[in-house]
Amino acid sequence: MKISGNTILITGGGSGIGRELARRFNELGNVVIVAGRRLSALEETVAGRRDMHAMTVDVEDSDAITAFAERVVAEHPRLNVLINNAGIMRHEDLTRTRDLRDAEQTVVTNLLGPIRLTNALTDHLAGQSDAAIMNVSSGLAFVPLSVTPTYNATKAAIHSYTVSLRERLNGKVEVIELVPPAVQTELTPGQSSREDYMPLGDFIDETMALLREQPTPREILVKRVNFLRWAERDGHFDQAVEMLSVH
């Protein structure tokens, strides 16, 4: 992946990993468009920075995504990088019958949203030089956290979808997967202050260093996520599931 001189669209750019990736890419000489639901949060991301733009989109609405993609391409015809980062994480109680609205919203936001936006932009990106798509999954795609079952499932699906996308777009669009460990963000309440989670700045530093490697790794794996990513291969999958279950 070319590290500078791009026009990059990042969903979920109003906070956390999306916000910090946007700012870091902008500092490297990229035009960056941050997208999300809350304009106020997006405007905080871009405040005082050149070549950064904020655009709202409802990733749960398929028609809104189609219209948004058309608008992005019209306003930023040099768009050549898509980073699907937007996501939600909800705790669920699997021990009883429950309202499934959280699970359904998680599937729409975390899985259908990236699929729909990627689909809407594929033809455009395939015609651009140095085009890339980066999908953000999670270490929990490989070892599930039992209290967030639908989140884990959507991230496992994103991993699988990314593999297929990479194969089909080979030679046209570079396809990368970013696999975060537990990072200090506000993905869930109080997460940003958990001492056992990876500091956001450290995660971004290591991520950007990996993105500079040539060739770019297919999967961006900071050291702290390797325990989960390779749990099954390395024979400690059951141990990892148990560890997360008492987390």
Rank of each mutant, 00 (worst) to 15 (best):
K2F: 01
G5S: 06
L9P: 01
I10W: 12
T11S: 13
G12F: 02
G12V: 05
S15E: 13
I17S: 01
G18N: 04
L21Y: 09
A22H: 06
F25G: 06
F25C: 01
N26G: 08
E27L: 15
L28W: 03
V32F: 08
V32S: 01
A35D: 01
S40Y: 01
E43I: 01
E44Q: 14
T45M: 07
V46I: 15
M52K: 04
H53Q: 05
E60H: 03
E60P: 00
S62L: 13
D63Y: 00
D63Q: 12
D63A: 14
D63G: 06
T66C: 06
A69V: 10
R71A: 14
V72N: 05
A74Y: 04
E75L: 13
E75M: 10
E75Q: 15
H76E: 05
P77Y: 08
N80P: 01
N80Y: 11
I83G: 04
I83D: 08
G87C: 08
G87W: 04
E92L: 13
D93N: 15
L94E: 09
R101E: 14
D102Q: 08
A103W: 00
E104L: 11
Q105T: 09
Q105M: 11
Q105W: 03
Q105E: 14
T106L: 01
N110E: 05
N110K: 09
R116Y: 10
T118F: 08
T122L: 15
T122W: 12
H124G: 06
H124V: 12
L125M: 09
Q128H: 04
Q128C: 12
Q128D: 06
A131M: 06
I133W: 12
I133K: 09
V136A: 05
S137H: 02
L140P: 00
F142N: 12
V143A: 06
L145E: 13
S146C: 05
V147K: 07
V147M: 02
T148H: 09
P149R: 02
T150A: 09
Y151K: 06
N152C: 15
T154W: 04
A157G: 09
Y161F: 15
R166P: 01
R166W: 05
E167W: 03
E167R: 15
L169N: 05
K172C: 00
E174P: 00
E174H: 11
E174R: 15
I176R: 07
E177Y: 09
L178D: 03
A182Y: 10
V183S: 11
V183P: 13
V183F: 11
T185E: 05
E186Q: 11
G190S: 04
Q191T: 00
S192N: 10
S192Q: 08
R194L: 07
R194W: 02
R194S: 04
D196N: 14
M198E: 15
P199M: 01
L200A: 02
L200C: 04
F203G: 11
F203P: 15
D205S: 10
T207I: 07
M208G: 06
A209R: 14
L210V: 03
L211E: 02
R212Q: 13
E213K: 14
T216Y: 06
R218F: 15
R218G: 15
R218H: 14
I220C: 08
V222T: 15
F227P: 02
L228C: 08
W230K: 11
A231E: 03
D234I: 00
F237I: 05
F237A: 10
A240K: 06
M243I: 05
L244Q: 13
H247D: 12
H247I: 10
